[in-house]
Design a protein around this nucleic acid. Sequence first.
DNA 1: GGATAAGTGTTATTATTTATCAGTCAACTC
DNA 2: GAGTTGACTGATAAATAATAACACTTATCC
Lengths: 144, 144
Amino acid sequence: MTNIDLNVNKARIFCEKKGARFTTLREKVYALLLQQDGAIGAYELLDSLKLTESAAKPATVYRTLDFLLEFGLVHKLESTNAFVACHHFDCNHPVQFLICDSCGEVQEIQSLGLKDTLDKQAMSVGFKVAKQTIEAHGTCAACK
Amino acid sequence: MTNIDLNVNKARIFCEKKGARFTTLREKVYALLLQQDGAIGAYELLDSLKLTESAAKPATVYRTLDFLLEFGLVHKLESTNAFVACHHFDCNHPVQFLICDSCGEVQEIQSLGLKDTLDKQAMSVGFKVAKQTIEAHGTCAACK
DNA sequence: GGATAAGTGTTATTATTTATCAGTCAACTC
DNA sequence: GAGTTGACTGATAAATAATAACACTTATCC
């Protein structure tokens, strides 16, 4: 059983637990994202999806992504309008991204300290944070 | 002299110092952004611009924004695809945004600590940060 | 004053995302 | 297990966001 299959299974169980339906379409899209190195745009994803779901349209992809985003199975990179699978959706964690501009690799980090720092900075000017977007572009270890 | 005029003047001097041309078009766009409360989308900005520059087209706006972004007179909010004027382009600073989902106000903060925290977190996994995107959505002090 | 580069006008196209309505399927009720 | 309900998907269209390419104009520099 491949690593991807393992993650897909974990996702299925996770969804069942939440009372959400992990349909064939959603599973396929999630699997496509998992087998991607870095992040992938919605239309590139659509092209991949079409190989097995020839009827797929933009709305198909965006709706599926909405579901996956809602349950934390996928993250959206705001700085590149791209989507990336999350491997540890089951542990509740803050999320930040390191995006290599050279090879495209996307590394997810979970720094509670970073999250807290932003929360506190905001709090100090009376701002209550609901959602954070933290993304760094640069060069990954392999590309240096 | 209004506050906006003051900022525009400051921007003109800043550009001259850098050997960059603060043309009428660029000045107009920057002024429009200054007189905005929060951030504004490129096409909304285009509509405003058209009031005095009826020939303006999307490319007009995007090109002008590119210039303003390059010199730090304007920032782009990646999470909303919107643009916001920067009032202190002359002091070199890291930048983070607090975006109120209730009233739309955008507050710019400059936390060196936050920047360093992210840089260090990245460094610890061998990643060299070139550019950061840090944006928080939530509720501002006035809206609470 | 002419060469050069930067800036702008103009047209077209691509990329990204959402809206809407109709049809289908799963789950739940009686 | 037939019917109802709501969730999911198909299909078409449109809105929003961003870029490409080429022509023309203007500023700058020698």
